[in-house]
Amino acid sequence: MIQKETMKAAVKEVWIRSLTVLQPDVLEALTGALERERSPRGREYLGIMIENAKRAAEGRMVICQDTGVPTFFVRTPLDFPFVESVRETFDEALRELTCGEFPMRPMVVNPFTREDRGDNTAARVPVIHTRLDNGIGYMEIMAMPKGAGSGIWSALKMLPSTEGIAGVKRFVIDSVLNAGANPCPPIIVGVGVGGPMEEVALLATEATVRPLNERNPDAEAAALERELMEAINASGIGPMGMGGDTTALAVHVEYAGTHRPWMPVAVNINCWPGRRAVCRVYRDGRVEQV
């Protein structure tokens, strides 16, 4: 059986890594954008972002002061040997980090009273999304801090099927243009298509944390990603909204089957650091930060 302390330590470390270490694929995307960007100011901004990421990793400092809503994706087989309370484990991990070894601001509040517990926990927060997968021999935990400045531009619409794929494209473009300079561009655009409502929101969110150098294996989804990416980068918004060729670092589309009369679409916009980190907890209690 996996001990609670083992799991807590894994959650803490993956959370801290998500706040302090930029993923190699994001760095690669920024570096590529820096080579292509024609606006001198845009190039300067991209250079500062890359420099900031280096300093954060070296000094184990947070990339951004908005450490966000603690959000985790957990993928696990059904027979994984962990029987402690998952809620308590994650709550304690965030509480101990916030109040103890690693200072984060207590950002999470009750939506009605706007009061906080002072420790980044609240009803159902940390948010824990779970996908069951009996094909893996470990539990995979992805930390995905969701910042306020990009998160507020997320949008969802249950379009009728008559809107078709053009309706989906328009919703994505309008969401991105509406957000403009605000969500710290160059952004990572996660698009969910299909499903019922809760699934399309999850798909859009999962799309934001796919590595930036991976395309959707489905040809039509990949073509849509390419088309939307080129269109968004023709908008002129540019790094931090000050003009340029680099408005999006990536557009990722995930889709699920849907009802015949529906064309659901969700857009989740992530800021340029695309913060995420993954760890795997094995059955023998070994933890691998990947």
């Binding site: 500062i48 900031n52 300093r55 990339i63 951004c64 340029w272 650091p273």
Partner: peptide
């Protein structure tokens, strides 16, 4: 304007 998401540089 500051560059967003760059607290490590400014702090």
């Amino acid at each position: 304007a500051l560059v967003g998401g760059c607290s490590a540089i400014y702090t």
